[in-house]
């Protein structure tokens, strides 16, 4: 299979738990890359720390496994020095929006050309199920055994407000949509955010009595709907899926080229 050509199969079977959604994100991200016919040598994947961030170890691209929350800062450095490369930055919800929240909003504001994939399992998987900024009010976590009283972020609204020029959401159940969205996000010139709802049956699932991976994926099917659907009007609690923002704005590296020119550099 072509997808097999993009992985380091010596590291398989991978370290994720049975049914972990992060493997489905890996699977369909590779399909998106396959349809774009990108050369492995032109892709750089940068990740931080977390179960989700382990994804960079499994792909046969240029990969950097860096520091918790700082993947976008490292990716910015790579992109500024080699703007011709395609940057993909997969992150956990904790990685991206707790410790890495500031890097996230500023990368979005600058509109630097890279694709941030937020693998949102609403929990800190790697460290044992502590609540994250995406757990949401009423959720249980190892650090919120009675209930979490923190409100969650809406990743789409946050990304929009911060200035991302491509913003989309899908789930591990909706694999064809996920592949299509990631393909468009990578092709987009500017800062792209793709939120994928991804099940952690081991911690979030168990702590919130959500059943198996199959049950959690079925819930994604039942609780989400395409943007602007009739169902959404009837049931406002449904979570919308699809592309929310797709617009052209000046891109950071292109603008920086202009500064170099003005300064008389490059001669």
């Amino acid at each position: 299979m072509a997808v097999r050509d993009y992985i380091r199969d010596r590291f398989f079977p991978h370290m994720w738990c049975p049914g972990c959604g992060h493997g489905i994100v890996l699977n369909n991200m590779l399909r998106a890359i396959e349809t774009l016919e990108l050369s492995k040598n032109d892709i750089v994947m940068v990740s931080g720390i977390g179960c989700s961030s382990r994804i960079s170890g499994y792909v046969d691209f240029h990969t950097l496994h860096t520091i918790h929350g700082r993947a976008l800062a490292f990716a910015t450095g790579v992109k500024m020095s080699r703007p011709e490369l395609t940057l993909i930055v997969p992150m956990g919800d904790g990685d991206a929006l707790a410790i890495g929240g500031n890097h996230f909003i500023h990368a979005a504001r600058r509109n630097i050309d890279m694709t941030a994939i937020i693998m949102n399992n609403r929990i800190y998987g790697m460290t044992g199920g502590q609540y994250s900024p995406l757990s949401g009010y009423g959720a249980r976590a190892s650090t919120a055994p009675y209930m979490n009283i923190d409100q969650d972020f809406d990743v789409v609204q946050l990304s929009k407000a911060a200035g991302a020029t491509f913003v989309a959401r899908s789930t591990t159940y909706h694999v064809q949509q996920m592949t299509d969205i990631i393909r468009q996000a990578i092709s987009h010139k500017g800062f792209s955010v793709v939120e994928i709802l991804s099940q952690c049956p081991t911690y979030f699932g168990r702590q919130n009595k959500l059943g198996t991976a199959v049950d959690m994926m079925t819930r994604y099917k039942d609780t989400t709907t395409p943007i602007g659907s009739k169902a959404k009007k009837q049931n406002p609690d449904l979570i919308e899926r699809g592309i929310f923002v797709q617009k052209e704005m000046p891109e950071y590296c292109t603008e920086y080229e202009k500064v170099i020119e003005r300064a008389g550099g490059g001669a």
């Binding site: 997808v3 097999r4 972990c20 489905i24 890996l26 699977n27 591990t172 159940y173 694999v175 592949t179």
Partner: peptide, 13 residues
């Protein structure tokens, strides 16, 4: 191919 696309372990083709 939905089984292939949804497998978290890339185990089915």
């Amino acid at each position: 191919k939905l089984c292939e696309y949804r497998c978290p372990d890339l185990a089915i083709e």
